[in-house]
Computed example of a mutant assay.
Amino acid sequence: MAVVVRVKAPGGAENLVLETVELPAPRPDEIRLRQTAIGVNFIDIYQRSGLYPLPDRVLGVEGAGVVTATGADVTCLSVGDRVAYAGAPVGAYASERNLPAWRAMPLRASVSEARAASTLLKGITAAMLLGRTYAVGPGTTLLVHSAAGGLGQVLTRLARLRGATVIGTVSSEAKAAVARAAGAHHLIVGRDADFVDAVRRLTGGRGVDVAYDGVGGGTLARTLACVRLFGTVASIGQSAGPIPDLAVEELGPRRSLSLARPSVMAHVNDVADYRRDAEIVLTALADGELGGDGTAYPLAQAVQAHIDLESGRSRGALYLVP
């Protein structure tokens, strides 16, 4: 029997409930995984609230653990292997689960399951944003909102490895210290800070090459004013609430901007893209380039984990422990 966290109805964190389910035997191309760590991400909140669909009402898109059984056609993995995964099918909030074997990425001995489970999806997202969405490299200057968050820290670290200059926004001095430790070159501190003016000053009036906005609300419209002519803005979430309608005239022709709304879930549905970027992230973890494990919560305290993430009280990655 497996313990799962199910959404009884779309809405707030109080709608998360624990249930016990019986798992079927793995299909020929699947593995059975005893999970030891489960990543918590903003996509979980969007699915819990009803903004995104959730087919079986069990949340979670990344985790790590130990293989306990393999389907008849699985030859690349064995019982006892330590693995991590990210992507569909959704359903990671569980003590055990079945998973397509191609999703499971073997872990090196130096990478803890907690670190992998709390970082893999964020790392793949960052790799997508720094490559597929906009080609970041030496000389690139970028703006990262919520730079002390789980994705913000990973995005900052990987951007620095590519030789880019990172300007980050954070809500407090405590979070500024976290973002600074992740490698941000410049920080704009305060929920009400005029980050448009600060970016203008930091870039000598030019603007950044690319900006990443996971805040939403009214932040996206102001972020457009931070980017240079023919630059790119990537809208990657809405932690502060829905994004107001945006007129196409806000993008051009005067500003000549590109606006991207990339989906990491679409990105990781391609086997080659997924396994390439997952390997990049796991290698960076093994090399000590992506920070620590994050903050742990028991699986039974998934409600509190959601409250802390949604309220902005958390710093860095969060993960659940069955």
Rank of each mutant, 00 (worst) to 15 (best):
L257Q: 09
G183Q: 06
I167F: 09
A37P: 12
I236N: 05
D308L: 09
V58D: 15
V4F: 11
D308I: 01
V144S: 05
T125H: 00
A272N: 08
S311L: 11
L99Y: 05
F195I: 13
A198P: 14
G237R: 03
P106C: 06
I280R: 14
A88H: 14
G218K: 06
T223N: 08
V7I: 04
Q35P: 00
Y319E: 01
C76V: 13
T68C: 01
C226L: 04
G288D: 01
L54V: 04
V170W: 13
L309T: 06
R180K: 14
G50Y: 02
A225T: 09
D287Q: 15
L155N: 04
I43R: 10
P24L: 03
A182T: 06
L142T: 03
A296R: 14
V178E: 12
L51D: 11
A2I: 04
N41V: 02
P53I: 04
H186G: 02
H186C: 07
G149E: 01
A240D: 11
C226K: 03
D194T: 12
A2G: 02
A193N: 11
L161I: 00
G312F: 12
L151I: 11
A69P: 08
Q301F: 13
G150L: 09
V303G: 05
R162F: 08
D29P: 12
E62N: 00
R276C: 07
A72F: 15
H306N: 12
A221W: 05
G241M: 06
P24S: 03
L142M: 07
Y134F: 15
V210T: 10
T223H: 10
L290R: 03
D44V: 06
T169V: 00
G91A: 06
V281N: 09
E173H: 07
L285N: 04
A300L: 15
L143N: 12
E113Y: 00
G316W: 15
T219A: 15
P244L: 02
I43K: 06
L130K: 03
V166C: 13
T219S: 15
S258I: 15
S239H: 00
R82I: 06
I188M: 08
A193S: 13
G183L: 10
V79C: 03
L320Y: 12
A84C: 10
A247T: 10
P106A: 01
A104F: 06
D192G: 13
K8I: 14
S110M: 10
R48W: 02
D56E: 15
I307Q: 10
S172F: 12
L121Y: 02
T203V: 00
V58F: 13
L282H: 00
G39I: 08
R115Y: 09
E22L: 02
P242E: 03
L130P: 00
V321G: 04
L224S: 03
A225N: 11
H145K: 05
D287M: 14
V268T: 00
L257T: 10
A182P: 02
I167C: 12
R254L: 12
V196L: 00
E113V: 04
V303W: 09
L202A: 08
R222E: 13
A101F: 06
R200W: 10
S112Q: 08
L309C: 00
G292C: 13
N15V: 09
D293Q: 05
P28G: 07
